[in-house]
Design a protein around this nucleic acid. Sequence first.
DNA 1: AGGCTTATTGATAATGAATGTCAATAACTT
DNA 2: AAGTTATTGACATTCATTATCAATAAGCCT
Lengths: 126, 126
Amino acid sequence: MTVKRNTWQKDAVKHALGEATGFVSAQELHLVLRNHGSTIGLATVYRALADLAGTGEADSLQSQEGELLYRACTTEHHHHLICKNCGKTVEIEANEVEKWAEKVAKHHGFREPSHTVEIFGLCGDC
Amino acid sequence: MTVKRNTWQKDAVKHALGEATGFVSAQELHLVLRNHGSTIGLATVYRALADLAGTGEADSLQSQEGELLYRACTTEHHHHLICKNCGKTVEIEANEVEKWAEKVAKHHGFREPSHTVEIFGLCGDC
DNA sequence: AGGCTTATTGATAATGAATGTCAATAACTT
DNA sequence: AAGTTATTGACATTCATTATCAATAAGCCT
C-alpha cells in the first residue's frame, strides 16, 4: 500500500487555506502562495486540495460559475451561507435539512443519499 | 428592444429536452440531435438551453463533476432527487427547505437569498 | 550518515466545457 | 417583395482541471 509522505507543499496549502477567509479556488490559492514567495506548482495545489477534501479537512463546493472552491473546516458535516458579493461565509447547522433529505430519499426508494445544500445571498456589509 | 425570433433550432432543442429522461448536458443534447439527422450547431444548443433556463422552461444544475445539466420542467420552484448511476430524476416539493433557507439567511442578515438543494442517491433499480 | 525505494513535485501538454467572433442566413415587419 | 437585424454555425478562444513524466526528495533500512 502506498504510504503518504509529508512535504512542505502540503503544509503550505493547508496553512494558506486556513488563512483564507471564505472559499478560495485552487488558482487563487496558488497565486497567494506565489505572491508570498513560494515556488509551489499549480498542479500540486490542486492535488493537495483534493487530498484535504478527501480527508474531510477541507470543504468543497462549486461556485455559481462552476469553479471548485475550497475552505478549511471541521470534519463535521455542515452547509454554508455565502455572500455572493464578498464571499463571506457562515457555517450552518442543518439538522432539519439532513433529516429531510434522508426522509425524501427513502420515501422514493433511493439509497446512499448525499446532498448539496448551499445558500447564497448578500451579507449585511454588501 | 430586441425582438425574439422563432427558429426550428430553438424548437428542436426544446423538443429534444422534453424527450430526454432526467438531466442532460448541452453536449449530449447536441449529439442526440445530430444523430437524428439535425445539422444544428453546438453553440446554438448552448444558447437555446441558456434561454430556456432563463425563462424558467428548463431547470439547470451542476453535476457532481461540474458539468451544467438541463431538464425540461414546470416553472414552479422545486428541487431534485437524482440517481447518480442512471440519472433518473424525481422532482421534489421542498417547502420545508425553502422556509428554512429564508429563515437562516435572514437570521444572519443576508438579503436576496437563493439556494441550491439537490439530493443524490442510488434509485431502486440501480 | 549514506543509500535505496518510490511518493511527490512541477513544468508542460492535453482535455473538455463553455463562450466569443463574425460572415452568412433567415425571421419578421412594412 | 424588400429591408432590417436577430440568429445561426463553423471556428477560434478562454479557462479550469487533469494527465504526463523526468527530476526531486521523504522516509526507511542498514
